[in-house]
Design a protein around this nucleic acid. Structure first.
Lengths: 238, 238
DNA sequence: ATAATTATCTTGTATTTACAAGTTAATTAT
DNA sequence: ATAATTAACTTGTAAATACAAGATAATTAT
């Protein structure tokens, strides 16, 4: 079986431009090459180019202006956890350090799980892990992840330190994140949470419960994230 | 001058389908008519139909499946404040009651405003209002809004009770919301906030700071929202 | 010199056509 | 009857073409 090669051309262009913006090749306020320029730069037609730009605009990388062009948006300096891409890629690998609290282990699903589970998920058991993420030495995220144990061989023995879970899933298991459903609350820190996030018990903590959909229609990732928003905010753009 | 009439066809279709989903004509899990069916139902071509469906999918109303069709998503029962549409339309006018704490008034911009302001905004002064929103009798949102006083005649004398600010801006001033930038934090309730939201002082409150972009490139809405998330969660889908 | 017009750039909308790829149901061979 | 194949759907990708509409710079008329 040959490796995945049939990446659509619009997606390819999207990734190139996205990388250029992330790398700072195009800076905030810059005008991207016009659609027609991109067309014969990359040898594709305008609808294809427009699809790539549309996705970029949707993800908040650019802003389109009729008659003017596509303007590069300033990248969120804050923590872009509201984006689908996963924290590591959004904030940059350099600044976000990840500690593994509990290595991936196989456990039965907890009773009264936060999200309803399908029969297939219940039968396969679940992979559990806990991570703590630091930004400039300050603990920001305490992250509990549940994944159904379906076709993920040897995942319990992989190295997750300073690597995005999304990246590992993508490179080793060809799993892509397709969508997110999430609930956000402000809760008082429990004793456990307060210790991890270096706060006092009862201090406000942002709690996100996320269900991530993948390209495998029966495989979901569930994560419960506790954020210390004392210094940083969660950032989102639409 | 004739009223706005040049609404793009894809947008028209989007609004029709969106309304049908909101009204429950299409229910959760239902398959939308296929793209080709929609084509000759509405007399347009597939790219046009696809653009409408793409926007619907983007807004979380449907989910597209290659080879299968477009499946209607269950509407978020929770408070969809993370969507651009504004709270009133998201949750339905019936359930959300709005109290005006401070009627729209003209004030100078506060010092150290949460968002940086342009010179034009600073010169025009600002319209200020405070609202409290209830869901089933429970106070959920305490909402502080700042708008630059530009071409909004008689806005200080309009009735905002149980009507969406977005609706008034749309119908009377042709202002459409085009994008949102927001920061989310968990903070302890101040005495003032705790009284409005019927909480104890220091209890966790969700704080959203939003900058809303409009179709007028120099006009922004700024709102600072404090949420009681004890009973309800903020919901989002991507 | 200034103002109005025009030309030329940009993105937005829309049609037409063609084929690829995933899903499902009907058909056929075993 | 069951399993494999085929056909008929569905959405996804991609091209070529045309004109509309907003923005900007060059031109022209005053």
């Amino acid at each position: 079986m040959t490796p995945v090669k049939n990446i659509p051309r619009h997606q390819k262009l999207y990734e190139v431009l996205r990388k250029h913006i992330s790398d700072g090749l195009y800076r905030e306020g810059d005008l991207l090459p016009s659609e027609n320029e991109l067309c014969h730069l990359f040898g594709m037609t305008r609808p294809t180019v427009r699809q790539a730009l549309s996705t970029l605009a949707n993800d908040g990388y650019i802003k389109k202006h009729q008659g003017k062009g596509s303007i590069v948006h300033h990248l969120p300096r804050e923590i872009g956890i509201l984006s689908v891409s996963g924290t590591t890629s959004a904030i940059g690998d350099r600044n976000l350090q990840t500690d593994i609290i509990i290595r991936p282990v196989l456990i039965p699903w907890p009773d009264n799980f936060i999200f309803p589970l399908s029969e297939i998920e219940k039968e396969s058991g679940c992979i559990y892990m806990e991570r703590l993420r630091f930004l400039e030495g300050v603990p920001i995220f305490y992250d509990i992840t549940h994944i159904a144990n379906m076709n993920l061989p040897r995942i319990t023995s992989r190295q997750f330190e300073n690597r995005s879970l999304f990246m590992i899933l993508r490179e080793h298991y060809h799993i892509e994140i397709k969508g997110v459903e999430q609930r956000i609350k402000a809760i008082p820190a429990s004793l456990k949470i307060s210790r991890f996030l270096n706060l006092k018990k009862g201090e406000p903590v942002l709690h996100l419960e996320r269900k991530l959909e993948t390209n495998n229609p029966v495989l979901f990732l569930y994560s419960s994230i506790f954020c210390n928003t004392e210094k940083y905010s969660i950032f989102g753009r639409f």
